[in-house]
């Protein structure tokens, strides 16, 4: 089977016009993401990692270069509901139960009632929240809320999952747990995942490919194919192989003057 890229960016540029003059958020980004890859974007604030993800989701419009998603323009891909997007905050509606929140995209997309029910059950199980469908968001912990928001993004079964620092606001213990869960979920669903983070261990632990970015202007300084096996227990993070990859990521960040 020929591997056509799911997401393909060529010489992508994005300049924001602000009151302080133009700001180049993305500069000459070229990248291919293939089906089933788990790609992390890492870099300091202002390196354009979130902006790139938003371009893929057609929430921002690039000012130069080309970008295709599933062989379409990002806008067409958005209209075709090609991806699920997970934001940094869970953003659940307080007036809907967990099941109601997960049903939201399904209602918008016009799934039948029976289909909605079965899909909600399925994704609740996928994120390990079975039995919590009837609860309201405020009754759940932050980590559980974020899992519900992942379930919401999975519910309509798009092939691509875009995640913008989904665990950034959670404490490290919950984060470790969710990282492990996410890997299992990726293994079970085979989705193509774009994952923004500023945690080196998180990027190395999760990804099959790590894109290191640096700011002013936002650009790619290194793309690392992660040599770690797909099966990753949490303590793989203490192995020399893991530390070697983490070291290379750190070098990439340093090369981009990201520590300035």
């Amino acid at each position: 089977m020929p591997q056509t890229p799911v997401i393909e960016a060529k010489n992508l540029d994005l300049t924001f016009q602000t009151n302080d003059g133009p700001v180049q958020a993305l500069s000459d980004i070229s990248l291919e993401i293939r089906a089933g890859e788990f790609v992390s974007f890492i870099g300091p604030s202002g390196c354009g990692k979130t902006t790139f993800l938003r371009c893929v989701a057609a929430l921002e419009t690039p000012t130069g270069g080309s970008l295709s998603v599933n062989g379409m323009t990002p806008e067409a891909a958005r209209q075709a509901r090609a991806y699920g997007y997970v934001f940094q905050a869970a953003g659940l509606y307080p007036w809907r139960t967990i099941a109601g929140n997960i049903r939201l995209p399904l209602e918008i997309m016009g799934f039948s009632k029976a289909e909605q029910l079965s899909r909600v059950d399925k994704v609740l199980d996928l994120v390990d929240l079975t039995g919590f469908g009837g609860k309201y968001p405020w009754q759940l912990s932050g980590g559980m809320q974020q899992r519900a928001s992942i379930a919401r993004a999975l519910s309509f079964d798009a092939d691509i999952l875009l995640m913008d620092e989904p665990f950034g606001a959670l404490d490290e213990i919950v984060r470790d747990h969710l990282n492990e869960e996410l890997l299992k979920l990726w293994a079970r669903t085979g989705k193509t995942i774009g994952f923004v983070t500023h945690s080196i261990p998180e990027a190395v632990y999760l990804s099959s490919k790590i894109v290191v970015m640096s700011p002013r202007p936002g650009r790619i300084t290194d793309v690392i194919d992660n040599p770690l096996p797909r099966e990753r227990p949490l303590d793989i993070r203490d192995t020399p192989e893991f530390l070697a990859v983490a070291h290379r990521v750190r070098e990439g960040l340093r090369a981009g003057h990201a520590y300035d």
Partner: peptide, 19 residues
């Protein structure tokens, strides 16, 4: 963020209003 989320679902203006 909430509006972006509905945008990723390609929700109509009426859906954004009612939901």
């Amino acid at each position: 963020m909430q509006l972006d989320l509905l945008s990723t679902y390609h929700a109509s203006r009426a859906q954004v209003f009612w939901l």
